[in-house]
């Protein structure tokens, strides 16, 4: 017999993560959206230093149209620089979007995991609670929360997160119900893995792909939700957000439509980019769609 060199004989196959990234790159719309999203995040983080105008300061006469008097996007009804407002607003909108999505993922994954893993009365109780939150009018409920406990950023984040976790909980539970019956879970039990580890160390990693996709889409809807709340005036008056710019300029929509259109466009582009990235993630992480 000849000796076989102990080197790697089989070609190195790709790790699942790398393979998913390859799938993501094949979706051109998603890649373009990701670039846009990175630019928006870049603006939100560095913008206030690159364009240091105070968004609350009255820098010119009201309703200076875009491009005139040295203001790229013009001024609003109080003569504030609209470009500075949109740049600063990006911070709050993205921050609230991400934080609210995190809150709802945390609640949703916990509830869904417990319900799907333990079954029985735990599942009954948790799913009835989930259904209760599902039938609640979400905007109304979060308005009540913000109105009652004050319009601070943490409270707004919490109010958005607390009304939007139900979808995550249902997806997580469905995945847990499917995966807990698979043989490798039984094999893990048979090697003495305790329940908490079984839930979050064995089953959850296998349930992640649809949860990740849902989470990406949720960031978008949280941004929309925040815009809706601040349009209605339920926002921290000391910070600028895109919804708030639209809300405060809404009486002048006929005289100076750009004061409403431009921040609206910012919301539109951001949410669209997030949705496209979410769609790309879905393609990349869902093995059933890989054959396309």
């Amino acid at each position: 017999m000849t000796d076989i060199t102990p080197d790697k004989q089989t070609p190195r196959a790709e790790s699942p993560l790398r393979e998913a990234w390859g799938m993501f790159l094949r979706n051109h719309a998603a890649v373009a959206a990701l670039v846009v999203l990175v630019l928006i995040c870049f603006t939100a983080v560095l913008g206030p230093w690159l364009y240091p105008t105070d968004p609350f300061e009255m820098v010119w006469a009201p309703f200076s149209p875009p491009g005139d008097n040295g203001f790229l996007l013009g001024t609003d009804y109080l003569g504030r620089d609209l470009l500075a407002m949109i740049i600063n607003g990006a911070r709050v909108s993205l921050l609230i979007g991400l934080a609210a999505a995190l809150v709802s993922i945390f609640i949703g994954v916990t509830v869904g995991a417990l319900a799907g893993f333990y079954r029985g009365w735990v599942e009954e109780v948790l799913m009835r609670i989930t259904e209760f939150f599902q039938v609640l009018p979400t905007l109304l409920f979060s308005m009540v929360l913000v109105a009652l406990f004050g319009a601070s950023l943490p409270m707004i984040t919490f109010a958005i997160g607390v009304v939007s976790w139900t979808a995550v909980a249902r997806i997580t539970r469905a995945e847990f119900l499917r995966i807990r019956e698979l043989e490798f879970v039984m094999a893990s039990r048979a090697s003495g893995v305790p329940n908490a580890k079984l839930m979050f160390g064995v089953i959850l990693p296998n349930a992640l792909p649809p949860i990740i996709v849902q989470s990406a889409l949720m960031v978008g809807s949280a941004i929309l939700f925040e815009a809706g709340l601040s349009f209605l005036g339920l926002t921290d008056p000391n910070v600028v957000s895109w919804g708030q710019i639209i809300g405060s300029n809404r009486q002048y929509i006929l005289d100076a439509s750009y004061t409403v259109t431009l921040p609206g466009l910012a919301i539109f582009i951001t949410v669209l980019a997030i949705s496209l990235v979410g769609d790309g993630l879905n393609d990349a992480l869902n093995p059933k769609l890989r054959q396309r």
Partner: peptide
């Protein structure tokens, strides 16, 4: 177990 295809954690 019987099914080596499914009794290892795929991730």
């Amino acid at each position: 177990f019987q099914e080596p295809m499914t009794s290892l954690n795929p991730v």
